[in-house]
Amino acid sequence: MELLGAIVTLMGSLVLLVASIGLLRMPDVYNRLQVGTKATTLGTILTLFGLLILMPGWWGKLILLIFFVMMTNPVSSHVLARASYFIKIPFTDRTVVDKLKVSSKAQKIEYEEK
């Protein structure tokens, strides 16, 4: 049983390693955010879940931490994506479509006509 918990913790740390490699390899801010959010969320959840198996008496604080990470991580990445879009950080050359730009342009024209 203890071995299982330790192995789950090890898997979590490997997922965190994937997050940092992705952060180094991806070409622009938005793709880095994608890797950063997903891999760190699962990495932290797995690490804390492994500790929950190792130490079942600590369930209260560990479950609180898991829920906390699961709720706040997507929010912070969304806020950062919005901020980097509005201060016009450029996309990578491989980007194929940008619907938000088209939509905000249409909205601006509508506003000016009023």
Binding site: L23, T40, G43, L65, N73
Partner: peptide, 14 residues
């Protein structure tokens, strides 16, 4: 840099 800081702080939690 902010993204890197975020990832570092979450890794520190683990």
């Amino acid at each position: 840099r902010v993204i890197a800081f975020d990832v570092m702080s979450i890794a520190s939690i683990a």
